[in-house]
Design a protein around this nucleic acid. Structure first.
Lengths: 249, 249
DNA sequence: CGCGATTTGTGCACGCCTTCACAAGCGCCT
DNA sequence: AGGCGCTTGTGAAGGCGTGCACAAATCGCG
């Protein structure tokens, strides 16, 4: 590894290990590696081989090694990777060393569940504010947080230092909420509403559409069915095996 | 377009428009096109240009045209695409003409919300059975469905003709549930549990991990912050604009 | 009927990502 | 100390996906 930490900050004394620019595909897999590593750490493993970690994360071992090499991580040849060290490295890269504050807008059916979802708290995030436009929901307490009216969003974002917003409103309200989030200073949005958001440059949007995932599965069902129905079709056994397609680009 | 509907079933008289093998990337975008088309249809549009539809779906128009050309779809040069026809084509390809039956396992926090999520019903899916292992939850009625014990899963899958299962259990229980689903005959699984599932060939798995999406956003936050902090950093304005990264491979 | 405006469908080139295969490095055992 | 086995890190090749740019096709109008 010749060029880890390529110094784009010339005079910096190495205090901040300047930011490597990782391929998007790699970034999307890092959280999965992190989860697998936490599992391994709980089971008492000190080191793990690329083969082992790859299996735990559901990817090819060559891919895993290349991913890790991108972030300049040191494994030890003949031994493997130090689990604790790798956890720290990945958490640092992902910016999870600081527990990030998240605002959630829309506490309807889905939003309510997200507000109570353990997985966020246990993986580096704190939902610090809930908002809704419906007066009937404002005031309700969910998981220790009081739902506030969306008009208070702007102030809360500033006061709590919120950089990430989650939209769990109906599609019709999503763009308006996104605009308010951006105006308040939020620079990353996770959108559960089934619609395209338009945001200014510098704001990142990721979209999760639950129905789309089912529709993709439906396509494969349809394909499998039409294969088995074909005269010469060899049935579903022609499909490649054990494909674990992770979501997220 | 010379080779639409390449007849892999030689003697078939065209009754079944033999299955084109679309690129995965295209498949993942079809549901988004479909959603945009439904919106357009509601607004009374009869035809739509590739430019217009691309904007509504948040993609490049060239990409959209290439995607649609893959499924042998007919647009009219100088005019655009027939909205109703395109809806039918995409719904057929995705296998949404038949409302697919879905089983949902795990009605905890997240599962409860999924069971009540309108977006499934309105886009071609019927959740027909709910299961949980916790006796305290069995018997509860959610959205008109009674939660059954997971032991009844196998019978229900057969009786109701269920081909798609959704796992919304804790990570520890997910692999066991997946095994039972597969044993019962389910061939597609949507997994919300944060773990890797291992399934036999011929079974498709898609994974949605809500925390992972946030972690990817967190990375970009971290990156943006480190850029603005840099001596020569030109701030967040260097990021490419309005990037709408859709989730799903 | 012919022409211009418009829009689709696609050949092509480029870049990203994946995968293979192997050299380089590390630790352990004798 | 030396050799052997194991594992990482990476060069190179191949495949896939994207986006440009343009030819082909269709409609409307004079």
């Amino acid at each position: 590894m010749s060029q880890q930490r390529q110094g784009n900050a010339p005079g910096n004394a190495g205090a901040v290990p300047a930011f490597p620019d990782l391929p998007e595909a790699t970034i999307a897999r890092l959280p999965e590696y992190l989860r697998a590593l936490h599992n391994l750490a709980e089971n008492g493993s000190d080191t793990i081989s690329s083969e082992g970690l790859a299996a735990a994360a559901g990817v090819n071992s060559a891919k895993l090694r290349k991913d890790l090499s991108h972030l300049g991580s040191y494994g030890t040849r003949g031994v493997g990777y130090d689990v604790a060290l790798l956890v720290d490295q990945i958490e640092y890269i992902l910016g999870l060393d600081q527990r990030r504050a998240v605002a959630l807008v829309g506490v309807g059916n889905l939003g309510h569940a997200l507000a109570g979802y353990d997985g966020f708290a246990s993986r580096g995030f704190r939902i610090v504010a809930l908002f809704d436009a419906d007066p009937a929901l404002v005031g309700e307490t969910i998981n220790g947080l009081v739902v506030r009216h969306i008009d208070e969003l702007s102030r809360a974002v500033v006061e709590e230092g919120i950089a990430i917003g989650v939209i769990a409103t109906p599609a019709g309200a999503a763009q308006g909420v996104a605009d308010e989030l951006v105006a308040a200073g939020v620079t990353s949005i996770l959108n559960f509403a089934p619609c395209v958001l338009s945001v200014p440059a510098g704001v990142d949007v990721r979209k999760v559409d639950l129905a789309i995932e089912l529709q993709i599965l439906s396509f494969h069902e349809h394909r499998k069915a039409s294969l088995t129905a074909l005269p010469g079709g060899r049935g579903a056994s022609t499909v490649e095996g054990a494909n674990q397609e992770a979501v997220g680009s």
